[in-house]
Design a protein around this nucleic acid. Sequence first.
DNA 1: GTGATGATCTTCT
DNA 2: GAAGATCATCACG
Length: 231
Amino acid sequence: MKIGSQRGKLPGRLVPRSFFKTSPDRVAPRLLGKVLVHSGPSGLMAGRIVEVEAYLGPHNNPPDPAAHAHRGITPRNAVLFGLSGHAYVYSIYGMYFCLNISCETEGHAGSLLLRALEPLVGLEQMARNRGLPPDAARTEAYLRRLTSGPGRLCQALGVERASHNGLDVTDARSPLQVRDDGYAVKDVAVTPRIGIKHAVDWPLRFVVAGNGFVSGPARMRTGRVLGAGSR
DNA sequence: GTGATGATCTTCT
DNA sequence: GAAGATCATCACG
């Protein structure tokens, strides 16, 4: 399929690279409400970003011990040290993938982990990719299992390392894009990051306050709501 | 609802 | 050789 041929069908407008050029803790809250779009062999799928974690680059003071870039560049994390706005996809626990977007300037290796989407387009295909039966009722509990969680959203959209690592999400020709459809998030809440062993209480996880597609146990789905003007 | 357990393998030391 | 930015399932209350 020719990607360019369906450019006009994609929701909203492309988010420019300049959007990603600042530090992860500043970009992450602003990324909430944007739309992740994947146009691949199995069709168009899209979801609204409702949960993002920030991982600070090794230049940060103090350094972020939970970040993959913490000990410097390796073959795995090389994408993070390049231009901002590129997909960093890695495999985790031998069975899942996680999708990040590089940010900050070249060499600074800031990273944004996409942790949950609210599914918008291509729900049937997402369910197939996740190995779930189709469900006409589409209860919230069912929809949550599609894209609530970093491993789940990659599986739902068919994102994996071999074909998606290094893609430019700010390129109109890319099968993986971040787009802005004008949706405005009301409140952003902050919590500690999930599933890490270091810097466990740094407030670098950002969620759309009150959104049902945020991942994790109930007590982790709410947090301190950021005041107006801080985003 | 919560907490524990195991699956499974890539990456870096 | 160990750790790891996860998830599904199970027991329990």
